[in-house]
Amino acid sequence: MTSAPSIPPAAKEHELVITRLFKAPRELVFKAWTEPQHLVRWPGPKGFTATSDKFDCSPGGFYRTCLHAPDGTDHWVRGTYLTVEPPARLVFTHAWEGDDGNPGPETIVTVTFKDEDGQTLMHFHQGVFTTLASRDGHGEGWSQSFDRLEAYLTEVSP
Rank of each mutant, 00 (worst) to 15 (best):
T83Q: 14
R78Q: 15
P86S: 04
K114S: 05
R89E: 10
F22S: 03
G141I: 05
P87W: 09
G141L: 11
H123Q: 12
A24M: 10
L39W: 09
T154M: 09
D147H: 08
F30R: 00
T154P: 00
K46F: 04
P86V: 04
R148S: 11
H138W: 13
G141T: 02
N102A: 07
S143M: 02
T110Q: 05
F146D: 06
G61H: 10
V156F: 08
V29R: 08
F146W: 09
K114Q: 11
L82V: 11
T34E: 13
K12F: 15
V77F: 14
H75C: 08
W142R: 02
S58M: 13
E140F: 15
E27T: 11
T112P: 07
R20E: 13
G79T: 00
V91W: 00
P45V: 10
G101R: 03
N102H: 11
Q37G: 07
K23D: 09
G72K: 07
K31F: 04
T49E: 09
D100C: 08
V128R: 03
D100R: 09
L67P: 05
T73D: 03
V111H: 02
S6T: 15
T73L: 13
F22A: 06
N102Q: 14
I18M: 04
A50I: 02
D53S: 11
L90I: 12
H75T: 05
I18W: 02
C66G: 02
P158T: 06
T110I: 13
P5N: 14
P9A: 15
D56T: 05
S58H: 14
V109A: 00
V17S: 06
D56K: 12
H94N: 09
F146N: 07
G79Q: 00
F92R: 01
T49V: 09
A4D: 13
L149G: 03
H94A: 00
Q119P: 01
W76K: 02
L90M: 12
P59Q: 15
V17N: 02
G141Y: 13
V17G: 01
P43L: 05
I18A: 03
R135S: 03
E35L: 15
A4C: 08
P105R: 01
G72M: 03
F55Q: 04
T131W: 04
P9R: 13
K46Y: 07
V156C: 05
P8F: 14
A95E: 09
L132V: 09
E85N: 14
V29L: 15
F124P: 00
F55C: 12
G44D: 06
